[in-house]
């Protein structure tokens, strides 16, 4: 790793979110599902907002969805991302009914509802990040 480059921000998992990051390192997108009422939620939170249960069963998402919105970043808000410009952040409606944010990796024109697949890729620090690509 190039040590002269500014470091990227790294996530600081909590007990609540650790299963998400454990899954991400294995390439799996893990979501919380309420063990009491079955409601799926994301990002990780303590209580089920439908039944207030703290009991969670983590499920593996299909990693398929559709484009909800996006932004194409041209400005280096953080020096660690300067050599990646421009990059595109996409919001994805997952099949499970929640959303995920990822980096778009395609030249295909974005539009609402575009079917996509998601996969994890490690950055230079070993942080798994979601990569989003159109369904072929």
């Amino acid at each position: 790793m190039d040590t002269t480059k500014p470091a990227k921000p790294v996530p600081h998992p909590t007990p609540l979110s650790a299963p998400y990051w454990d899954g991400a390192r294995q390439g799996k997108l893990m979501l919380q599902r309420c063990a009491a009422c079955g409601k799926t939620r994301h990002y990780p939170q303590m209580l089920c907002s439908a039944c207030y249960s703290t009991q969670v069963k983590w499920i593996e998402a299909s990693q398929r969805g559709t484009i909800h919105s996006w932004t194409i970043t041209h400005h280096a808000f953080h020096p660690a991302f300067a050599d990646e410009l421009p990059y595109t952040l996409v919001t994805v409606d997952l099949e499970e009914g929640v959303r995920a944010l990822g980096r778009y990796n395609s030249t295909q024109l974005l539009k609402l509802g575009l079917p996509v697949r998601l996969r994890f890729e490690n950055d230079a620090h070993g942080t798994p990040g979601l990569i989003v690509e159109p369904e072929v």
Partner: peptide, 11 residues
């Protein structure tokens, strides 16, 4: 900060 900042969602 946890889920989006590392992807480059900074500002």
């Amino acid at each position: 900060t946890e889920f989006e900042y590392p992807l480059g969602a900074i500002s």
